[in-house]
Structure formats: C-alpha cells, structure tokens
C-alpha cells in the first residue's frame, strides 16, 4: 500500500489540488465560504487577493475591453506565479479538464485502443494556431473568443454555478481523447495550454534528469503526455526546459532508478 502512495504520489496530490480548489469555489457559491470566491476565470482569495486568468485578460484586451485594476492585478499575480515559478503546472495541477482527459487516457490503455485505431495526424503545434486564432477572433468579434467556447470554463463554471449543456461539451472532449486522438485536447488543441506553454519557457520549477542513473527503460516516455519534452532522457543530465512540460510528475513516479526528480532550474551553473 505504501508502494501505491509512492508510485502515485504526485498524481494523488494533483487530484487533491484539482478537487479541493473546485470544492472551495463550489462552497463559496453553495455555502457562502469566503476562502476562494468566483471561478478559475477570476476569483477572490481570502476576500482580499484578486486572481485572474491571464489568457482570458489577453483575449479581452484583444476584444477592446477597458478593465478595472482588480482583475489586472489578479492576472499579473497568476501570470507571475506560472511564468516565474510553476511553469505549465496549471494544466496538470488545477485544470479540471485534466481529470477528464487523464481518465480518457487511462481507458485507452485498458482497452488497447492504441494498437487498433486508425491514426489521425494532428500536430502538436495546432494549439499555437488556435491561440493565434483566438486573439484574432476576439479582436474581430469584440468578445473573448475562447471564453465563449472553452470546455474548461464550462466545466469549472458548471460545477460551481450549474452545468446545463456543458455536460455535452465535456463528454465530447472525453470521447475525442478516448477514441480519436491521444491527448487530443490538452496536447494538441487547447489554446490555454498553448498560452501557458509559451509563458513557461523560463520558469524555475523543473523536472531534472540524472543521466548516470538512467537505465533507458523508457517508462517516463511511455507515461508522459508531452513526450517531446523528454528529449534529453538517457543522453545528458539537466533540466527539462520545454514550456510544454506540465510538471505533472508522472515521469518521476514511474522512474524506478532515481533518474528524475523535481528541482529548481539551474541558471547559474549551466553544466550542473
């Protein structure tokens, strides 16, 4: 049993983080708790600290909105947290869609869909095009374009304020990831993930590789939702510096050779 906790320590922590944040939002609306009010688009922590989704703000700027200072401060706080420290951790530690797509991925594995399905080619760069398109459409239509269709918002807003037909959208994402493309939504299409990938290029929290320990079992690559970031595995020691890495920690859990660990990025000694 202790092995179970060790092998899934980050996964369990992530689920706790995702669900407890959702619960705090839910409780704010349902029971009037004042810990975390609002939702993932914008919220108020401890009745004083504003928080906001920087990508939503970017879309709103593009749409031509004049915004009040509260939300700007909130956006700056969140942006600084991820860009300087946590990287793309939003996607694996906060975003509720991650639970949906992870379970689709899990089912894929059990049902051996990989070996049977016809491959649909969808580039990993599609999301950056969607990101660009989001900003252009926000500008043209005068409304935050992704916020109007985002299944992420539909899910977290739905859990707090009522789902409506949002269930259908979330089901679509689940089916798409399950039957159509592996990691289809989070790894290929989602512009919010693309935004955090771009902002995470310089962040401090990193997965570190210790090459001499590596036995080239490739368990890490098998479990990673963004395989391309693990390009240094077995080749050289160092940080996983890709912005696409979500810091989910799955690679660290599956590594039985102590070749991977979380650490702070080494900016000073480049050889370290």
């Amino acid at each position: 049993m202790s092995n179970f906790f060790k092998n899934y320590r980050f996964l369990l922590l992530r689920r706790v983080s995702q669900l407890s944040i959702l619960f705090l939002y839910f409780a704010a609306n349902a029971y009037g708790w004042k810990i975390l009010q609002g939702n993932l688009s914008a919220s108020l922590l401890f009745k004083t600290i504003p928080l906001a989704d920087p990508f939503a703000l970017l879309q709103m700027f593009s749409a031509g909105a004049l915004l009040a200072s509260d939300v700007l401060i909130g956006g700056a706080i969140i942006f600084a947290f991820y860009a300087l420290f946590a990287g793309r951790a939003f996607c694996s530690w906060i975003c509720p869609i991650n639970i949906i797509t992870d379970s689709a991925n899990y089912l894929r594995k059990i049902l051996y869909l990989e070996g049977v399905e016809r491959k649909i080619w969808l580039g990993k760069s599609v999301r950056f095009w969607v990101l660009g398109l989001t900003l252009i459409l926000s500008f043209i239509t005068g409304i935050a374009a992704f916020e109007m269709v985002s299944p992420i918002s539909m899910l977290h807003r739905g859990i707090v304020f009522g789902m409506g037909m949002g269930v259908a959208a979330v089901t679509c994402i689940f089916l798409f990831d399950l039957f159509a493309v592996k990691n289809g939504w989070c790894g290929h299409i989602c512009p919010l993930g693309a935004f955090y990938s771009l902002s995470a290029k310089q962040s401090l929290l990193r997965v570190k590789h210790n090459q001499p320990n590596c036995t080239l079992c490739m368990q890490c690559k098998a479990v990673c939702p963004e395989k391309q970031v693990l390009d240094i595995i077995g080749k050289k020691s160092g940080d996983i510096v890709w912005g696409e890495c979500t810091n989910c920690g799955r690679c660290i859990e599956v590594c039985q050779d102590n070749a991977l660990a979380f650490g702070v990025r080494n900016y000073i000694n480049k050889n370290g």
Binding site: S41, A42, L57, M60, A144, R157, M163, A169
Partner: peptide, 23 residues
C-alpha cells in the same frame, strides 16, 4: 467585452436573483 464570467456578482447577490448563463 468586459465580463470575465467569474460569477462573483452571482455569489454576492443575497437573494440568489442572478444566474450565470449555462450552455
């Protein structure tokens, strides 16, 4: 343009008058 759809107004309403539009 300006609404970020966070629902804080909905939570602030003591009479539960306000709703957030669902899909």
């Amino acid at each position: 343009r300006a609404c970020i759809k966070c629902g804080q107004c909905v939570e602030a309403c003591p009479y539960d008058t306000l709703h957030l539009a669902k899909p």
